[in-house]
Design a protein around this nucleic acid. Structure first.
Lengths: 195, 195
DNA sequence: GTCTATAAGCCGATAGAC
DNA sequence: GTCTATCGGCTTATAGAC
């Protein structure tokens, strides 16, 4: 697969956009700032992206798979019964949340910021990402033979998003652990009912 | 208590700010737009508020009690065992969420938008509001003799915030009902363990 | 209603690769 | 000599503030 030098430039721009948009939000970051961070001129940025919205969409697209991989990594690194491994996802998020640059879930924050334009491509990208997480959870839960895996998976994503949202307000990782406890409880409950 | 005409003007401004900031977000709304909506000049607005941030703080302060009252109203209007009444809070939110102008939780959305300034007065106001909701929930749960009411109350606020956050992404009230189901399950579980 | 700063987006030009 | 990728500077609009 050919890889021109412009692909490398494009990557640098997306990386800069990722750092700035995730760190400060969309409307708080100018296109000039992204260009400067990427070490290029605005003209070059507009050569690679049609608009700022285009750049935002590219930023979110670049985070979809890595985000999902992170969750899967937390889960797969854990051992023990299923509720404990699900709880490990939350513990993993809590560990990440202790870092300085952590600013919650970029997908949720963009959906919050673009609330007045629900049809925006970035909001759709956020929805697609969240659906992927929910589907992935339903699959790993169903694989363990738990009844109503879809229902429990949805409750768990609600707790994950609740943890992300609450963190923006309180900046206290204890809430993430509480969400993990709740998720483990709901899962154990569903498994018990199935018996 | 004396009530000058300037208080009435201030109220009009806060009302306009509420409508616009809640509907579109903070950075998406200009001070000009708020002044125009309030039917005054920008000069008058800046006589009553030192800055836009000041206005944002006043907007959030005006929503604290009404928001809490709404949750309490949903709860008190419901009947039956405690889990059913807690679930009624979520059903009430779902009903509200069906309206056109509903845009999730204004407190959460502001915390998301102001993520780069965690010490901002508006973020602190959001934190105070969420703490009030959590404390209120813990009290009504403890009043029913449920053990570990604090723990369950926290899990329920996580589900409420999860429902608010998820709605911004999916715009599907079914998620709010799922959160209500989870809250009722967790509560029934805690009550059963106490027996 | 005026001021100053800054936003998004566009134009003309050019250096090197093939 | 055409194509790709880049640059510096410019325009128009709108922001917050007084």
């Amino acid at each position: 697969m050919a890889r021109s030098s412009s692909d490398a430039t494009r990557d640098r721009i997306v990386k800069a956009a990722n750092s700035l948009f995730y760190g400060k939000g969309i409307r708080a970051v100018s296109v000039d700032a992204v260009a400067e961070k990427a070490g290029i001129t605005k003209k070059t940025l507009y050569y690679h992206f049609r608009s700022k919205d285009d750049l935002v969409a590219a930023y979110l697209a670049s985070r979809d798979q890595p985000n999902l991989d992170a969750f899967a990594g937390y889960f797969e690194a854990a051992q023990g019964p299923l509720p404990a491994r699900i709880r490990a996802i939350f513990t993993g998020i809590a560990t990440a949340a202790r870092h300085r640059r952590w600013k919650g879930c970029g997908f949720l924050r963009i959906a919050a910021e673009l609330v007045d334009t629900p049809g925006h491509p970035a909001v759709k990208a956020a929805g697609a990402h969240k659906k992927r997480v929910e589907t992935w959870l339903a699959e790993i839960i169903a694989a363990e033979g738990v009844a109503e895996a879809d229902r429990v998976a949805r409750q768990i994503v609600l707790l994950m998003d609740g943890a992300f949202a609450t963190m923006l307000v309180h900046h206290d990782v204890a809430y993430i652990e509480s969400a993990g406890d709740a998720a483990a409880t709901l899962l154990a409950n569903a498994a018990r009912e199935a018996r």
